[in-house]
Amino acid sequence: MLRDITLGQYYQSDSVIHRLDPRVKLLGTVAFVVSLFLSDYFLGYLVAILFLAICVELSTVPFKFIVKGMKTIVFLLIITVVCNLLFTTGTTVVSFWKVTITVEGIRMAFMMALRLSLLILGSSIMTLTTTPNNLTDGMESVMSPLKKIRVPVHEISMMMSIALRFIPILLEETDKIMKAQIARGADFETGGLIKRAKALIPLLVPLFISAFRRANDLALAMEARCYRGGEHRTKMKPLKYRKRDGIAYGILVIYIAAVIIVGKFGIPVGGFVW
């Protein structure tokens, strides 16, 4: 059933990571991503891998669930590796036809692949352990300093949460319209790309009309319930830092320091510093 779809990729569980304040997880993810660019040597990444492994273990999310997120970037990963392998100049290892592979190239390719994978894995930990709802709340709070430069932070997060609420409804509606049009002889499945794109018009037009009608109704309903933007608003579920969030911030600081310090040392292997 369409109404049962889970949005994003939230994995239900009750781990320490799940219970952390969304702000900690957001800032933690940003810190983790930054940390991946802080060290030039492999040892620094070892610290990052270790840190990530501990987070994965604590989150109780099955590893194969996390790796699923990697599928989307396989192509990007291959391109990165190939480009780095082929176009880095330095000491030649093998050379055939017009292609030369260098020690530096191998090193670069390996590092970039590692960096990208860690980046994706790190951010999936956040989306896997935080409900979309919580995430929008966290974002609103983390971005609230931007209000000073007139970024409509509250409005953005309100739009995100309304979009999340209406995606299943609109999906169901798409399904309904599609069936109605098929019953009237519409053909969505055969023909070339252009024909199929054209076939979507009788689906999209009613869908858009209905979406606008819904938006209008919803705006009325919100105004009728005294909605007037973010000001004077209180929160039913305010974000509150707990002890564990403080500890998590402490661990993050230690982690960053560790990456910076360890990342300064390289190990010489195979005539090159890793």
Binding site: N133, L218, A221, Y227, M236
Partner: peptide, 17 residues
């Protein structure tokens, strides 16, 4: 006319405003 993604959050929307 339901704004919240959870029943209780929707009921809380008016008082929040």
């Amino acid at each position: 006319q339901i704004i919240g993604q959870v029943v209780e959050e929707d009921v809380g929307f008016g008082p929040e405003n």
